[in-house]
Amino acid sequence: MVTPTGSTLRLTADREVCAGAGQCVRAAPDLFDQDDDGLVVVLRADVPPEASERALTAADWCPSGAVAAHRPR
């Protein structure tokens, strides 16, 4: 499938597997936060185009595989 450039990414974060070290928050503080227990919270599931690189970096840095960035179909 060819995705038009500028189309938005959609973020998911699996709190069951989150290891809580906050790499996602470091990569994209506008998209992720950690709750008081240290687990991931998605602040913006629909990533604005200007933040898509940060979203992909967060998915790359996340050590536990909790963060995923998908192109919605």
């Binding site: 290891a19 809580g20 070290a21």
Partner: peptide, 12 residues
């Protein structure tokens, strides 16, 4: 065990 500790070391 890890979940007992991660809240102490969040970015914030």
């Amino acid at each position: 065990v890890r979940r007992m500790l991660v809240g102490e070391f969040t970015v914030r």
